Simulated scan of single mutants.
Amino acid sequence: MTASLTSDILPAGPDGVLVRFALRPDPVAMTAAQVLARGLQDHPPAGVVEIAPGLVSVLLRFDPARTDRARLAARLGPQASAIAADPPPQPAPLRRWTIPAVFGGQHGPQLAEVARMAGIDEQQAIQTICGSDLNVLTIGFAPGQPYIGLLPQAWDIPRMSELNPRVPAGAVVVAVRQIVMFSAESATGWRQVAQSAFRNFDPDRNTPMPLLAGDAIRYTPVTADRLRELAAAPDGLGGATLEVLA
C-alpha cells in the first residue's frame, strides 16, 4: 500500500511559499518533493524567481511585483494535491558517484559510537554504509553540500546533544538515517564516521558543484595513505568516479 501524504501550502517569509509533504524524511514524501520540484523547474509559475527543493518540501520565492502569495498558492495547490494523492515511485538515478573514504580512527572518530547505537560492530557499520543504496536527497546548508540517504531504520540515530566543535571539509557524518558530507570545516551535531577528499564546491572548477539531487552514491573504503594520494588530485574530487546510468 502506498504511503498517505498531505500537501500543505505554507507562507515562508515575505516573498515565499513552502509546499510540504511530510514532517519527517519519509522516502515517499522525499520522492514527491523531487517530482514537484522537477515539474516546477520545467514549467515555473509566473513571477517565481527561485525554486529550492528540500527533503520533503519545495520552497518557492516570488517577485511581489509580478505575483502574490494567494495567486501562487492557488497555482500550486492542485499540482501538489495530485502528487500527494497518487505518489509517484522513486525515479531511478541517472548517475552514480563512487567516493573513496577512510572509516574510523582519526578520520572517523565516532564510528564506534555510531555502530553501538545501531546495534552492530564497526566493520558491519562500514559494510552497511558502503553497501546501502544511497542517493543525494537534497543539496543545502552550504554550497554543494549533500544530504544522502536513507540508511536502514537502525540508523535513525539522533543528533548529539552538544556540538562537535569542528569537522573538516570532506567529513562524512551521520544522523537520522542520513549522511552529510561537509563542504567546509564546520561545527555539527552529527557524528563523524569517515573522511573523504571529495570537495562538494570549488568555484574555480568547470562544474563548481558536481553532485545533483537524485544522484546515486556509493562509498568505498580506502587507507589513509591512499586518501592522501587522492587528495592531491587537481580536480578536487578525491578519486571519486562518475558513472552515467542512463
Rank of each mutant, 00 (worst) to 15 (best):
M30H: 07
P234N: 10
Q153L: 09
L72S: 12
G170C: 01
V176M: 14
E50G: 01
W155S: 01
D225W: 00
V28S: 06
N164Y: 04
L163N: 05
R199L: 14
V244T: 14
L245V: 03
G104N: 03
A118V: 12
V49D: 05
L237S: 08
I83E: 09
A118T: 06
A37I: 04
P143W: 09
V17A: 01
P165G: 00
S183F: 01
I148Y: 12
Q41E: 12
D15H: 10
M209I: 11
E229C: 10
R69I: 07
L163H: 00
W155A: 04
R191P: 07
V244H: 13
P44T: 00
P89N: 12
M30E: 09
I9N: 06
Q145C: 10
L151K: 09
Y147H: 04
D121Y: 08
P210M: 07
T220M: 13
R159S: 04
L237Q: 10
P27T: 05
L227M: 09
V193E: 00
D204H: 15
I51P: 00
L94R: 15
G239I: 13
E113I: 04
R199W: 06
L111A: 02
I120E: 05
T207W: 05
V56N: 02
F21N: 05
A171S: 15
I148Q: 11
A92F: 06
P89Q: 11
A233T: 15
F103A: 06
A101P: 15
I148A: 14
M1V: 14
Q90D: 08
P25H: 06
G108I: 03
R24V: 14
G47S: 09
M160H: 10
L245W: 07
Q79V: 15
D204E: 15
V167H: 01
A213Y: 01
Q178E: 03
L242W: 10
T223M: 03
L245D: 04
S183D: 02
L212V: 08
A213V: 13
R218M: 06
L76G: 11
A112G: 10
M1Q: 05
E122D: 11
L40I: 02
L59Q: 12
T31Q: 00
Q106K: 10
T2N: 05
Q106T: 13
P100D: 08
P87T: 04
D204F: 08
V167N: 04
Q106C: 02
F103Y: 14
L137D: 03
A216E: 13
P11R: 10
L60H: 06
D235L: 13
G189R: 08
A52T: 12
R38N: 01
G131W: 06
W97E: 04
Q123F: 00
I179K: 06
